[in-house]
Design a binder for these strands. Structure first.
Lengths: 127, 127
DNA sequence: AGAACTGTATCAATCTTAATAGTACAGTGA
DNA sequence: TCACTGTACTATTAAGATTGATACAGTTCT
């Protein structure tokens, strides 16, 4: 179910995180389905439970899963995941806006860019 | 001219780099004007010349300055660099806009985010 | 209540990488 | 040659991320 490559440049918890993102995105794991406990999975992979905990914590902040202390970790609902992703993209927009203004671009130009992009989306939708 | 905050989470060379980007972008330093030598500036800030050298190297990579070994470092003509950088950021804005609309966000919400971010920039500039 | 599971918080040890410094070398111009 | 300039190389230090050991707390079932 989960494989770890100890030669990978990526850290273990990162690999675990990404594996679960795949499994959840591909619906191999369904909403509300329980994930393996931190100790079980740690035992299988022969690593420390805290490492799994760290991966789970990251999945939780991105709302891929939710946690019920004492009970377990469960696959989240896609609406929530999307909401979290939207929020993240808004943060990026804000950061880039600040950078652009700093570089001398005008606010209007940025808004125009947004409008341009939105225009393109409409055309695609109609096609 | 250049201030270093030793409590900043940013590294020293990064702070030096950003200070000069500001000074050059705002034309406080004019094209072909000579920068302080790595040893002079290092002496003023009481740090190692190599740290300044690292900041200058980064400025040179981004074409904010040019270097004449044995003579010194001089302000370049970064208009093209800045223009390219601005264009790159606009591309990001557009891509994220498309993604956000695809995820279900509204165009108005994106424009609001831009306005929010711009608001913060104005406050900082006026202060 | 107690046992067996669950997640979580705290702290320490380790590992890795980035940042900084010390030194020596090389170009420029008087 | 001298006094300045930048640069390359190496080593050390510092900082941060990763992982691990341990103890604590919630849930469920008997």
């Amino acid at each position: 179910m989960i494989n770890i490559d100890s030669n990978s440049p990526k850290s273990i918890y990162e690999q675990v995180y990404e594996e679960f993102v795949k499994l959840i995105s591909n619906k191999v794991l369904k909403p509300d389905e329980q994930l393996p406990s931190v100790r079980d999975l740690a035992g299988m992979l022969r690593i420390n439970p805290n490492t799994i905990q760290k991966a789970y914590k990251l999945l939780e902040t991105k709302e891929f899963i939710y946690s019920l202390p004492g009970k377990g970790n469960f696959v989240g609902r896609p609406e929530n995941t999307i909401r979290a992703e939207i929020q993240g993209e808004f943060e990026k927009i804000k950061n880039i806006t600040v950078k652009l203004l700093f570089l001398g671009a005008s606010k209007d130009a940025i808004i125009n860019a947004v409008n341009d992009a939105a225009e393109g989306v409409n055309i695609n939708v109609r096609a």
